[in-house]
Simulated scan of single mutants.
Amino acid sequence: MNILLAQMPIADAQVELNLSNMLSMIRNAPLDTDLIVFPETTLSGFPTPDQVQTTGLTTHSKPVRLIQDAARKRSIAVAFGFCEVADEGAFNTALLIDGSGRIALKYRKTHLWPDTDWGVFNAGSHYAVCEIASLRVGMLICYDIEFPETARALALLEADLILVLDGNMIPYGPVHRRAVITRAMENQCFAVLVNRIGEGKGLSFPGESVAVDPFGTVLVESTDGHPVRVTLDRERVEQSRKIYRYLRDRREVPLRVERGSSEDGIANTVSFIPG
C-alpha cells in the first residue's frame, strides 16, 4: 500500500478553504497512491461552540460528497476529519472514503482533549475496521493514541494498520511520536500518524507526521512541513507475528485490590491480586 501523509495547514472554521486545499492534494497525488491521510478536523479545523452550527457537516454534506467524487476519479482512498453534527450532538469525526468513493469507515473520537474538544464535541463510543488495498484499517484521532486501550481495541478487530489523524500542538508533538511507535509495536501492526502544521486558535502545530512498522521501526517522517510518502508491505505484519503474538500470548487477569499489611509485615501495602 502506498500512502501519502498529507500534513497541511488548516484554517479553523473555514470549510471552503480547507476543502480547496484537500481537493488539490487529491488531484495532484502521485499516480500510484492508494491512500491519502489528512490531519484531525481537516475540513472544519477546531470550531468554538458557537461555530458548530455554521461549520458542522453531516456525512451527506456537499464538501464530503466532493471529496468522495475526487477519490472516485483518482481511485484513491482518503481519510480526513471534520466537525460532524448529528441528532445526538457534535462529534470530532474521521471518515475513510475508499477508492470507489464510498464511505468505508466512520469513527468518532472517543477521548476528548480539554482545550479543543471539551464543550464542543461529544465523545464517540465505537471502534471499527475496514479493508483498503488488502490491509485491515482502523482509525484513531489525536489524544486517542495516548491510551493503549484504543489501539488494542483495533488490534482485537484484527487491524493491520492504524491511522491516527492528529491535531497535536507544540509542545506535545513528541508525546504522540513516542506513543504511536509503542502502539504499533505492542499490537504488531503498522501505524501512520498525520499531524497538521501552522497556526490556529493561538496554537502552533509542528507536523512531525510519521509512519511506523509492526516492529516499532520508523519508516518515514516529515521534518520540513511537507507531505511524505510511504509504502507498506503486509508481509512485514506477518513477519512480526511469526514467532510470538502479543494478542495470543497475553493474559487477561481479573484483579481486585487489597489494602493492609503484606505477608512480610510491611504495613500499608496495596496489592493487586487475581480475582
Rank of each mutant, 00 (worst) to 15 (best):
I266S: 09
I103N: 08
G119R: 09
H176C: 06
G167T: 08
E263P: 00
G89C: 09
A159Y: 03
F82W: 00
I197Q: 02
P63W: 01
R196M: 10
D166M: 14
H60Q: 10
R183V: 08
L154T: 01
G101F: 01
L203F: 08
C142F: 06
C189K: 12
D34W: 07
G216H: 04
G167W: 08
T42H: 07
F38G: 07
I103G: 02
S44R: 07
V164A: 06
V64H: 06
L135P: 15
Y172K: 02
E88H: 12
T223C: 05
I181R: 11
L43P: 07
K109N: 13
R259Q: 05
V85T: 12
T59P: 10
R152P: 11
L66P: 14
G225P: 07
G216I: 01
I170K: 05
C142T: 02
I10G: 07
C83R: 04
R236C: 04
R108V: 13
T48W: 08
G260T: 03
P114F: 10
R236T: 14
K73T: 14
L154H: 05
G45A: 11
F190A: 03
V129W: 13
L96Y: 05
D87N: 04
V192P: 10
E208W: 11
N2K: 15
G202L: 07
Q239W: 11
E199Q: 14
Q188M: 07
A179D: 14
R152T: 13
V253Y: 09
V129D: 09
Y143D: 09
V137K: 11
H126E: 15
G198A: 00
I3W: 02
V194I: 02
V175E: 15
